[in-house]
Design a protein around this nucleic acid. Structure first.
Length: 507
RNA sequence: GGCCCGUUCGUCUAGGGGUUAGGACGCAGGAUUUUCAUUCCUGUAACACGGGUUCGAUUCCCGUACGGGCUACCA
């Protein structure tokens, strides 16, 4: 039987980075096993439904390049892949369970249940309590029929038989045992006719022939219910294998990473920016921060999984080849933003100038810089060893696109003297006469000039740098000069000398 | 509270009955680069605790502590 796995998010908001990791592991497993990766939208909770969340999820998957083989927006012949559109399917299975004696109707209202919990905080619906409640087990058959006929709101609950062990063989955690005495009678079909996660999930996984369920650890406890459902429906022999992933934890402090940690630590926790209805619901994304999708993927792949060697950088293909469920760690992994940045830096460095242009072009355009692709490629080459995020190219390196805004005053104070004015005048003349304005040629010409003047490089080069870039940080001066071109270089020198003299004179 | 899951440097992790417990991020120092960064080198730092089992446990078992998840007509 060929492998089929699914990523099944709920459209209740932006897709968390942990969700992206779950998708990634599913994707890698499918690819490696020659199986299929399916996207299913679990929108059975009408109250928590958020418009736009579904398209966000799909866009996020596209951005990181984890394209489903099948699923919502991606086609396939086991659809629909949106659970709200499968509402009718679930009911028949719930009824089947009732008919077989594995489930029952319950007429207790949410208010009644809440009152019970108030009285007894540990209250739960199970074999100990159900006969004291209003349901098709405790009521007489004709009473039940009367209630049903009168359309009194009811739910269908799983009937859990006590006195046995439910054994789950988790691919990551090994054997996990739950006593059925502790497993409660979960609601399977809600009063509005919608299934709960538990029913919909099992029915869909069965119908969509899912072979492996790779999901977050928060689902481990309810897997006991799921096993019971497979049994009750008579699907035990095709029950998927389970793998429960460790959680991603906050950068600092306790608990799992949450969307609010983004604001708290000033880091993105979502792949793409999310614009909720209120300002408090606006969150930055890795994409907008200037991360390369491959870097994000590489980073999260290693958050809870490691193939064993010393390799840190993996392409998607390499991840696919190396991936193995039994190398997934059991403990939660803390979200380490410094490491994420490091990955991004490495990916930017490793990328060709031409490929970088594709990313820099829109950023330059947004700034109003009208430059050619070949110039952008030059900028990419000059800056890529010193940036962390994509926007750094046009922000840190703004002087490669427009004139200098500020001159580093410390350096000026230390290096500039008005006597240097004629020297720089001569330098400008010299630059005008350099045969070809290549970095190497400019360099030898300037260095010769410095020597002729009886000066040292340290007297002139820092000033030349300030003149061209305004800052002491940046690419090699001669590379910058070559990139800017003869005319611009001389122009900047002229402007700078004027500015230098004014600054020093007024001090 | 109950039920489950976990615990190797600050962080991500490798490893596994006898190792100088390895790598990466971070941090510190140095070399190169008359900038910044890159690159390279060096350093820093860990097997939660207590009992077993064993000739020997960080590794296996049991407890404890700590952390996490679940405990909804949410997923």
């Amino acid at each position: 039987m060929s492998v089929r796995v699914r990523f099944a998010p709920s459209p209740t908001g932006a897709l968390h980075i942990g969700g992206v990791r779950t998708a990634l592991y599913n994707y890698l497993f499918a690819r490696q096993q020659g199986g299929k990766f399916i996207l299913r939208i679990e929108d059975t909770d009408q109250n928590r439904y958020v418009p736009g969340a579904e398209s966000y999820i799909i866009e996020a998957l596209r951005w990181v390049g984890l394209l489903p083989d099948e699923g919502q927006e991606f086609g396939g012949d086991m659809g629909p892949y949106r659970q709200s559109e499968r509402k009718a399917i679930y009911k028949q299975y719930a009824l089947d369970l009732v008919a077989k004696g594995h489930a029952y109707y319950a007429f207790d209202t949410p208010e009644e249940l809440e009152a019970l919990r108030e009285k007894e905080p540990n209250y739960t619906c199970n074999f100990r309590t159900r006969m004291g409640m209003s349901n098709s087990l405790s009521l007489l058959a004709d009473q039940v029929q009367k209630l049903l006929d009168a359309d009194v709101p009811s739910v269908i609950r799983l009937k859990v038989e006590p006195g046995r062990d439910i054994i789950i063989n988790d691919m990551i955690r090994g054997e996990v045992v739950f006593s059925s005495d502790e497993v409660d009678d979960k609601v399977l079909l809600k009063a509005d006719g919608m299934p709960t996660y538990h029913l919909a999930n099992i029915v869909d996984d069965h119908l969509m022939q899912i072979t492996h369920v790779i999901r977050g650890e928060e689902w481990l406890p309810s897997t006991a219910h799921h096993v019971l459902l497979y049994e009750g429906l008579g699907w035990s022999d095709t029950m998927p294998r389970f793998a429960h992933l460790p959680l991603i934890l906050k950068p600092e402090g306790n608990g799992k990473l949450s969307k609010r940690d983004g604001a708290k630590f000033g880091i993105p926790v979502f792949p793409l920016a999310w614009e909720g209805e209120t300002v408090a619901e606006h969150f930055p994304g890795f994409r907008e921060t200037g991360f390369l999708p491959q870097a994000v993927l590489n980073f999260i792949a290693l958050l809870g999984w490691h193939p064993g060697g010393d390799q840190e950088m993996f392409t998607l293909e390499e991840l696919t080849a190396a991936f193995s469920v039994d190398h997934i760690s059991k403990g939660g992994a803390r979200f380490d933003y410094d490491k994420a940045k490091w990955f991004n830096q490495k990916y930017i460095q490793a990328m060709s100038n031409e490929a970088l242009v594709e990313h820099i072009r829109p950023l330059a355009k947004a700034k109003g810089y009208a430059v050619s692709d070949s110039y952008l490629a030059t900028v990419a080459g000059l800056m890529k060893e010193r940036v962390t995020f994509l926007p750094d190219f046009v922000e840190q390196g703004y002087y490669l696109f427009e004139s200098v805004k500020d001159y580093d005053n410390d350096t000026l104070q230390k290096k500039w003297k008005s006597e240097l004015t004629p020297v720089f005048e001569k330098l400008m003349e010299r630059l005008q006469s350099v045969a070809s304005f290549e970095a190497a040629e400019v360099e030898s010409s300037v260095k010769d000039f410095v020597q002729e003047q009886g000066l040292k490089s340290g007297d002139v080069l820092p000033l030349l740098r300030i003149a061209l870039a305004g800052t002491m940080k940046g690419p090699a001066v001669f590379d910058m000069a070559a990139a800017l071109g003869r005319e611009e270089t001389v122009q900047r020198l002229r402007t700078a000398v004027h500015h230098f003299n004014q600054t020093i004179a007024t001090v």
